[in-house]
């Protein structure tokens, strides 16, 4: 392999390495930004979901309470039967919605029990007794349920916030590692570049020395040739003089 092709190959290698590293860093950064955005979006969605669920649950509870309260005002059994079906459907919907939150199970069970005491009286036609149970049992259980719902929602929000803080800390650590990694890679690139430059300089110095030595040899040779030419000229001149003398002597 010639000297020129070796340098070209090394330059291409260095350029290729630097380009690959730059692309890797760019892709890595893009992937990191995308991941951070994904995590942020997920956390935001989770927090929003907690808030939405909390609002919906509160709304469901109030609707159920209103349905039950409406039953207390009804006297006509036909109307009561119809409204009772509506209440049971609403209570079932509420129960299904809150079943996904185990922390609320005891309060929900207490609310169900309190509602049952109201319905038991109501179904016996004892409206006064039903109102008494509603005021003394159901309303208290309802307040406890709302408190439990608030506590659970606050806990879920706190958990989401804690996860957000954890993720932020992880991202900070990751960023430090990425910057550190990039710095190491940059150091490696600088080292490789330095070694490459050093190897090229060494080669060029060797070449210069060899050229210098060649020039010296050439100069010596030229001097020697010049000296030989001088000697030859002198010999020719001497020979001519000799020939002239010989000619004169013969004449």
């Amino acid at each position: 392999m010639s000297f020129g092709s070796t340098i070209r190959a090394r330059l291409l290698l260095l350029l290729g390495g630097a380009t690959s590293l730059a692309i890797a860093l760019l892709l890595g950064t893009l992937a990191l930004v995308h991941w951070i955005r994904t995590v942020e979006t997920r956390l935001r969605a989770e927090t929003q979901l907690v808030l939405n669920n909390s609002q919906k649950s509160t709304y469901d509870l109030i609707i159920t309470q209103n349905s039950l309260q409406k039953l207390l005002r009804l006297r006509d059994i036909d109307e009561l039967e119809k409204a009772l079906a509506g209440y049971e459907e609403q209570a079932k919907r509420q129960k299904t919605a809150l079943a996904t939150r185990p922390a609320l199970a005891p309060s929900l069970a207490a609310l169900d029990t309190a509602a049952k005491t109201v319905l038991d009286e109501l179904l016996l036609g004892n409206n006064a007794g039903a109102i008494d149970r509603f005021v003394n049992n159901y309303s208290r259980a309802f307040t406890a349920m709302l408190d439990a719902l608030k506590t659970d929602s606050d806990a879920q929000q706190a958990a989401a916030q804690a996860e957000s803080v954890r993720n932020e800390a992880f991202l900070t650590r990751l960023l430090i590692w990425v910057i550190g990694g990039a710095a190491v890679l940059l150091g490696v690139l600088i080292f490789v570049g330095y070694r490459f430059q050093a190897s090229i300089s060494l080669t060029l110095q060797t070449l210069a020395r060899e050229l210098d030595r060649g020039a010296k040899v050439l100069s010596e040779n030229v001097a020697q040739i010049a000296s030989s030419g001088q000697t030859l000229a002198e010999s020719a001149s001497h020979q001519a003089a000799t020939l002239e003398e010989n000619s004169a002597s013969l004449a």
């Binding site: 059994i77 036909d78 009561l80 039967e81 009772l84 109501l122 179904l123 016996l124 036609g125």
Partner: peptide, 15 residues
């Protein structure tokens, strides 16, 4: 009578 739920058939028959 007092123990009869309002949705019992006997009560409903009267409505």
């Amino acid at each position: 009578w007092k123990a009869l739920p309002i949705l019992e058939p006997f009560v409903r028959s009267l409505t």
